[in-house]
Write a protein that binds this DNA or RNA. Structure first.
Length: 646
RNA sequence: GCCGGGAUAGCUCAGCUGGCAGAGCAGCUGAUUCGUAAUCAGCAGGUCGUGGGUUCAAAUCCCAUUCCCGGCUCCA
């Protein structure tokens, strides 16, 4: 007997029965039509796969489920490959997986594909879908597979074959296209009801920049035309939240070809926002037992040699020479923090020492990776180095992660946590790595955070925790990070005197909370869609008069609010109220305060919130209280507080 | 760094196979004094990213270059 999820009765299964047999009996015709594959014990199978004897519960995989979409998109990738081979027979196929919002397939072809090629490919795909060709799974021996792909001159497939361990391999065939593939696939091509090819891009074979560059075609597919349209509309919406666009619209920052790529220029409003963020950070770090330090912007080359940066990081560094002496412009802040530690003898009683610096760093990033504020060449890190005794490491990591948690809650971010373990090229003893890695994951466990593991992704000097945020287009960006370091204390010969009077090596953590202020601000702009919470809004309130009669009153009100520390301006232009309101809305100012005759008479202001809600006439004091209350609101959850006058 | 695409007024964009560089918004001036997302009129604004070439003639075609965009690699 087999149980089918979502069906009432158990189904009698016989030897050789396929998923299709079981599911078609268990589900209504309408429901069954939507099923593209089936799942048993978390493994997906083709609808026409035979059901193993040990399978007792079968989950149908409907088209529009996450798993169904994966199957659908992967199948669409095969259909795209078929179309490409038909149009460009000498193109060689490589791999074509489904990805988060669609699929891609990489081809090796003598010339790059053009947008016009994409249209042609789409057309041929539509034909293939209209023919409703079945996807057929064929199991062959390694020998047979080699023969097939050798005859097709699919050299990349032969390379993949050589790396597989299995003796029996599965191929999928539809029409005259065959591909080495694990599956599963939709039963036939007409299951692809809505698809679109979105872009072409170069991609290295096997992701290795030393190997050949292939042509990658991206596309997406959905269970219905409606869902595809919805997806494209969502993308369109997301583009409106793009911080590069909002940065111009809200006059926050710019880039100048004359200044140089990756060098952000902050305009008054953008600079104000980052100043508020930075002040908040200074205050919050002091509250959490950090000490603010500050080092020089350029340091002698010899020091970078000592730290290992000159050997390992030189290509990313800027240098300058003065009087025969080469200086490196700092790409990281750790060096001067080491020097602060070394400036006197340290006792075990002094530890932990937490040195914090809003340090501006320069890194020569490759030109192709620059991306608005999210990837720049000059940026400011909210950087700290914690030096502690080994027995303090665990608590220190917990403290940092808790800090990250509080701050992410303050902004309302969803974030992803990853622990990266020892890479192949690394230094330090296995024991030290194990202990540090354990300390990291234990800290996350202690705070009930779920996390992924990235094996071998750690820094060469130690394991790390990365916290990643998503931008408007769902791309992930690393912001906070906690990294253990076994080398710098060694290289700088840091030590402290223990209880027994002997020398001991302190343990060191590098950590950032926001990461880079520039990147964080970029993500923040997209997160809020430019509508900053009141505590961060560069202009918190705008007072507007209706006719020139109230102009002086409006100015008087503004002075009163400014006196309380509220960032307010006055729009006294000779324009209609509707016009001024519209502009303030577009500037996403949290409070619109109207001063008309009534307000003048009653010594108050009429309050309209950013969302459009109108609170009516309030006294000046009530307006002040309202704005303060709104500024404090986000801090309540994390037990933090912040109020600053500008 | 690599592959592809792009750059026209402050912003958003039109300008077809080479033939006088345009619109809306913003700006300035004037009129209008108005109650919650755009009042009307006029004016001004461009080395068509930069450099070279082809041509009687280049925003348009070719080459180089800078920067931007989408990916790859890398990373806060």
């Amino acid at each position: 007997m087999v149980k089918v999820s979502g069906a009432l009765e158990e189904i009698q299964s016989s030897a050789g029965a396929t998923c299709r047999d079981i599911l078609s009996r268990a589900l209504s015709g309408k429901k069954f039509k939507e099923v593209v594959a089936c799942k048993c014990d978390e493994r997906m199978y083709d609808l026409d796969a035979e059901l193993g004897n040990d399978c007792t519960v079968v989950d149908p995989v409907p088209l529009s489920s996450p798993d169904g979409l994966k199957v659908l998109r992967h199948s669409a990738a095969h259909i795209m490959a078929e179309a490409v081979k038909r149009l460009f027979p000498s193109a060689k196929v490589t791999i074509g997986p489904d990805i988060e919002h669609g699929f891609y397939y990489d081809f090796d072809y003598e010339r790059p594909f053009t947008p016009e090629d994409l249209e042609k490919i789409e057309k041929v795909m539509a034909e293939s879908i209209a023919r409703n060709q079945p996807f057929e799974r064929v199991i062959v021996s390694r020998q047979e597979a080699r023969k097939i792909f050798y005859e097709l001159n699919e050299t990349y497939k032969l390379e993949i074959l050589d790396e597989l361990d299995e003796d029996r391999l599965s191929l999928y065939r539809h029409g005259d296209f065959v591909d080495l593939c694990r599956g599963p696939h939709v039963p036939s091509t007409s299951y692809i009801r809505a698809f679109k090819l979105t872009s072409v891009a170069g991609a290295y074979w096997r992701g290795d920049e030393k190997r050949r560059m292939l042509q990658r075609i991206y596309g997406t597919a959905f269970a219905s035309e409606k869902e595809l349209k919805k997806h494209l509309a969502r993308l369109e919406e997301a583009r409106k939240r793009d911080h590069r666009k909002l940065g111009v619209q809200l006059d926050l920052f710019s880039f100048s070809e004359e200044a140089g790529p990756g060098m952000p220029i902050f305009h008054p409003k953008g600079a104000l926002i980052r100043t508020i963020l930075e002040d908040f950070e200074r205050k919050e770090h002091l509250r959490r037992g950090y000490q603010i330090v500050q080092g020089p912007q350029i340091l002698r080359r010899e020091l970078w040699e000592k730290s290992g940066h000159y050997e390992n990081y030189r290509e990313n560094m800027y240098f300058t020479q003065i009087d025969e002496q080469v200086y490196g412009i700092k790409p990281m802040n750790c060096l001067s923090h080491m020097l602060v530690y070394k400036s006197r003898l340290r006792s075990y009683r002094d530890l932990p020492l937490r040195y914090f610096e809003l340090g501006k760093v320069h890194r020569h990033e490759k030109s192709g990776v620059l991306h608005g504020l999210l990837r720049v060449r000059e940026f400011t890190q909210d950087d700290a180095h914690i030096l502690c005794r080994p027995d303090q490491l665990q608590d220190e990591i917990i403290g940092v992660v808790k800090f990250v948690q509080d701050v992410m809650d303050l902004f309302g971010f969803d974030y992803q946590v990853e622990v990266s373990t020892r890479p192949e090229k690394s230094i330090g003893s296995g024991d030290a790595w194990d202990k540090a890695t354990q300390a990291l994951s234990r800290a996350l466990d202690a705070l009930n955070l779920s996390y992924g593991i990235c094996p071998g992704e750690g820094a060469f000097y130690g394991p790390k925790i990365d916290i990643k945020l998503r931008d408007a287009l769902d791309r992930q960006w690393q912001c906070a990070t906690v990294q253990c370091d076994f080398t710098l204390p060694e290289r700088f010969d840091l030590y402290y005197t223990g209880e027994d009077g002997r020398k001991y090596r302190p343990v060191m953590l590098h950590r950032v909370i926001l990461g880079a202020i520039e990147r964080f601000l970029g993500v923040l702009i997209e997160h809020y869609g430019g509508a900053f919470p009141t505590w961060l809004a560069p202009v918190q309130a705008r007072i507007m008069n209706i006719t020139h009669v109230q102009e002086e009153y409006a100015e008087r009100c503004a002075a009163a609010l400014r006196e309380k520390g509220i960032r307010v301006d006055v729009d006294a232009r000779n324009e209609k109220l509707g016009y001024k309101v519209r502009e303030a809305q577009l500037e996403k100012i949290p409070f619109i305060l109207v001063a008309g005759d009534q307000e003048l008479e009653q010594s108050g202001l009429n309050v309209r919130l950013r969302g459009g809600r109108n609170l009516g006439l309030l006294s000046i004091q009530e307006v002040v209280d309202l704005i303060f209350q709104d500024m404090d609101e986000p801090f309540k959850k994390g037990g933090m507080s912040y109020r600053y006058l500008y």
